Simulated assay, not measured.
Amino acid sequence: MPEHRNGGWIQTATGKAFWPIDPRPEDICIEDVAHALSNLCRFTGHCKDFYSVAQHSVLVSRALPTPLKLWGLLHDASEAYLIDVPRPIKPHLAGYEEAEARVMDAVVHAFGLAPATIPPEVKRVDAAILADEAAQIMLRPPMDWNLTEPALGIRIDPWSPPAARRAFLEEFEALTALAA
């Protein structure tokens, strides 16, 4: 019988139990993160073609200097366990931001990310890639997106979920091998 944990649990792709409201670093599994993010579409699926959170994360990672690449790859890792909630909705879902912060804290500790909070440069690149994504994978917008950063200037060719999962895991392996 498992120890008492808060809230209910979900079964992950690797068959583990994960408590989204009571996450622990030892519960985080990079294969689960890669699998879930590769099957999760950005923009609640309203892209011209399927474009995964895993691919977005790999592209963010590749646009950062080496010391921040792992943070870039894992900046949306909480979405592997909580889903990708659109920015306009997050502040209106009671308890979501707190749950997201708890999962990210577990991710930070599981992978030894430093600093313990998302670095400003990762936030900047994440905001900048939004301009590339809006221009390339979305239809013409009905109004201004009010983007805060200029585009990175990268080309986005959407990957299949298996390709995105593979690229995410390869990026993770390369970055953790560098740190070892």
Score class of each variant (00 low, 15 high):
His4Lys: 03
Asn6Ser: 09
Gly7Asp: 06
Gln11Val: 14
Ala13Cys: 01
Ala13Thr: 10
Thr14His: 02
Gly15Ile: 06
Ile21Ala: 11
Asp22His: 03
Asp22Met: 04
Pro23Arg: 08
Pro23Lys: 08
Ile28Ala: 13
Asp32Tyr: 02
Val33Pro: 09
Ala34Leu: 01
Ala36Leu: 01
Ala36Pro: 07
Cys41Tyr: 04
Thr44Gln: 13
His46Trp: 05
Lys48Pro: 00
Lys48Tyr: 00
Lys48Cys: 00
Phe50Gln: 04
Phe50Tyr: 12
Phe50Pro: 10
Tyr51Asp: 01
Tyr51Ile: 01
Tyr51Lys: 00
Val53Phe: 00
Val53Glu: 08
Val53Met: 02
Ala54Pro: 11
His56Ile: 05
Leu59Asp: 11
Ser61Tyr: 05
Arg62Thr: 00
Leu64Thr: 01
Pro65Glu: 15
Thr66Pro: 14
Thr66Gly: 07
Pro67Val: 01
Gly72Tyr: 13
Leu74Trp: 15
His75Leu: 04
His75Val: 07
His75Cys: 06
Asp76Asn: 13
Ala77Ile: 13
Ser78Glu: 15
Glu79Cys: 02
Glu79Gln: 13
Tyr81Ser: 02
Tyr81Glu: 06
Asp84Tyr: 10
Pro88Ile: 04
Lys90Gln: 14
Ala94Phe: 07
Glu97Gln: 08
Glu97Leu: 09
Glu98Met: 04
Glu100Met: 03
Glu100Arg: 11
Glu100Trp: 02
Ala101Thr: 14
Arg102Trp: 09
Arg102His: 12
Asp105His: 12
Asp105Trp: 09
Asp105Leu: 10
Ala106Lys: 05
Val107Ile: 14
Val107Cys: 13
Val108Glu: 11
His109Gly: 08
Ala110Met: 07
Ala110Val: 08
Gly112Ser: 08
Ala116Ser: 11
Pro120His: 12
Val122Pro: 04
Val122Glu: 13
Lys123Phe: 08
Arg124Ile: 03
Asp126Pro: 00
Ala127Phe: 08
Leu130Pro: 01
Ala131Lys: 03
Glu133Gln: 13
Ala135Thr: 09
Gln136Glu: 10
Ile137Thr: 05
Ile137Ser: 00
Leu139Arg: 06
Arg140Asn: 05
Arg140Cys: 05
Asp144Leu: 02
Trp145Phe: 13
Glu149Met: 09
Leu152Ala: 12
Ile154Trp: 09
Ile154Asp: 14
Arg155Leu: 09
Pro161Cys: 12
Pro162Trp: 05
Pro162Val: 08
Arg165Phe: 00
Arg165Lys: 12
Glu170Pro: 02
Phe172Glu: 15
Glu173Gly: 00
Ala174Val: 03
Ala174Pro: 07
Leu175Gly: 11
Leu178His: 15
Ala179His: 14
Ala180Gly: 09
